[in-house]
Design a protein around this nucleic acid. Structure first.
Length: 498
RNA sequence: GGUUCCGUGGCCGAGUGGCUAGGCUGAGCUCUGCAAAAGCUCCUACAGCGGUUCGAAUCCGCUCGGAACCUCCA
């Protein structure tokens, strides 16, 4: 029996608003697509949270035994800056500002993105396609939509006919809108021009003379519209209908709504079985975003070099911090919360280090304890399978950490070997493989360890001689440079680098 | 204005009808030469007002407060 059969996954489907059992199209296989970053700038912490959320989902599904194909794109064609403005594109704009080739911009920020992903221990997707590598496919689907009569060309640009699509389908199915309201609301656009209705969206845009990124097409030189790349790349690698489509909450409308419309129109069936949206990271209750000026970069967070930060925090501390809340809830950022997370993570991290090296003497087996431990191990899976509830899982891991500490203190094992092994396996696997919380050793190396051991031995001698002034000085001085000595019961000492 | 979501103890944050969330902080105890770490114990909340129910933080209604989306955004 596979783990995914033993612990079937339930996830909240944004399409229905309900928690549903994951029934994949092909048993044992999961196709998942997540909207990746637009690489026209450094990714900030808010962006990172989304990728972390889906990293977790991919990790857990794989852990359960699913064969996961995880596709996360890189948007290297700028989305349109305004709605129907001059056809300006973010990447092109930045490129002109900096006097660079667009692809130079793309490369720089793609590399930054990958670096950040690595720092947070976010695993790479199986396929990371770029929009610019799929121009032909995008043109083809636009052609197809025109042939189907659901798109129209005006002056070298092509738009999707939402009103027409809505006659046979529901545009707004995902975000709970109807097109009458959409057509009434919203601001009146200054250059309301070529589109038949303002809710129509661009599939292909004609490139203005100064527009740098451009490709030839049946409609002249231009570039793909905002939403079409995701439809093309997801269906190319995962099929016309695939299991999970993820992305940030802010992409639900219009981006994902448009994806559904395009794909459904082109292929005659809905593209996605389960839509999953991760919520925003907030600062003082407000969405972290570049335009609000309340965002910060991962590097600033690590170094503490930012006006909103009191100090720096390690990548795993930040990862832990984010895992303490559910992906579907907003998470508010604060120094206080980060400090709490730092301590909490340290506790779990210490237990992780400990359990890997525990040597315990067997004593009488306590069957009650065994029951509790097996229940804890089981709960980890139950919680994760319940819409990837990392917060609840962490709560169990804290209980498990207490158990580990107790064992270490007693040096005795009061459960049977198989129970211990299962417990240990679950704790280590949940921490490292599922939650991706890597052990942080704090710049440990052999030379340092040897040096500290010399000092530890000197201090042992001092303590035996009751020379507490000296032993305290050794401890205090080491503490001052960030090494905390801990005295064990039987005269042994350990240390921890802070 | 429209659509949707949220409001939990000092702080963060789980929780979808009855059972201790958990972390951080604070207090006490144990261990310790003193610390640190660890263990144990305590601080028992659910915006307000109504309603449904034997029973609601959890369901319904209203009020107040906050947020996201409706325009590029993870």
């Amino acid at each position: 029996m596979k783990l995914y059969e033993q612990y079937p996954v339930f996830l909240t489907n944004s399409l229905t608003g309900k928690k549903e059992k994951l029934e994949t199209q092909i048993p044992g296989f999961v196709g998942m697509y997540v909207c990746g970053p637009t690489v026209y700038n450094y990714v900030h912490l808010g962006n990172t949270r989304t990728f972390l959320s889906f990293d977790l989902i991919a990790r857990y599904l794989r852990f359960l035994g699913y064969h996961v194909r995880y596709v996360r794109n890189i948007t290297d064609v700028g989305h349109l800056v305004g709605d129907v403005d001059e056809g300006e594109d973010k990447i092109g704009k930045k490129a002109r500002l900096e006097q660079l080739e667009p692809m130079e911009i793309v490369k720089r920020y793609t590399e930054d993105f990958h670096t950040v992903m690595r720092q947070f221990n976010i695993l790479p997707p199986n396929i990371e396609p770029t929009a610019t590598a799929h121009i032909i496919e995008q043109i083809n689907i636009v052609k197809k939509l025109i042939d189907l009569g659901l798109a129209y060309e005006v002056n070298g640009s092509v738009y999707f006919d939402v009103k027409k699509y809505n006659q046979s389908h529901h545009y707004g199915i995902l975000s709970g809108r109807n097109i009458e309201e959409l057509m009434e609301s919203g601001r009146d656009l200054d250059s309301q021009d070529e589109k038949r209705e303002k809710i129509d969206f661009a599939l292909w845009k004609k490139a203005s003379p100064e527009h740098i990124m451009r490709w030839p097409s049946p409609w002249g030189e231009g570039f793909p519209g905002w939403h079409i790349e995701c439809t093309v790349m997801s269906t190319k690698y995962l099929g016309e209908t695939f299991d999970i489509h993820g992305g940030g909450m802010d992409l639900k409308f219009p981006h994902h709504e448009c994806e559904i419309a395009q794909a459904t129109a082109a292929n005659g069936k809905p593209p996605v079985r389960y839509w999953v949206h991760s919520n925003m990271l907030t600062v003082n209750g407000q969405k972290m975003s570049k335009s609000l000026g309340n965002s910060f970069l991962p590097s600033e967070l690590f170094s503490g070099n930012h006006k909103l930060l009191e100090k720096g925090y390690s990548p795993m501390t930040v990862r832990f911090f984010m895992l303490q809340s559910h992906y579907s809830s907003t998470l508010d950022f604060s120094n206080e919360a980060l400090n709490a997370a730092e301590k909490g993570f340290k506790k779990l991290n210490n237990a992780l280090t400990l359990i890997k090296s525990l040597h315990l003497q067997k004593t009488a087996v306590n069957t009650e304890t065994e029951k509790v431990l097996l229940q804890q191990a089981d709960n980890c899976f139950q919680n994760m399978s319940d819409d990837f509830n990392t917060a609840k899982t962490l709560a169990v891991l804290f209980e498990m950490a207490s158990q580990i500490n107790s064992w270490a203190a007693a040096k005795q094992l009061n459960v049977s070997e198989p129970v211990f092994e299962k417990f240990k396996f679950t704790y280590v696997a949940m921490m490292e493989e599922v939650l991706g919380l890597k052990e942080e050793t704090g710049g440990n190396n052999e030379l340092l360890a040897g040096t500290v051991n010399v000092l530890i031995n000197l201090r042992k001698k001092a303590r035996t001689d009751k020379n507490f002034a000296l032993s305290d000085k050794i401890r205090d001085d080491l503490k001052a440079i960030g090494i905390q000595l801990k005295d064990g019961k039987d005269g042994e000492m350990s240390y921890e680098i802070e």
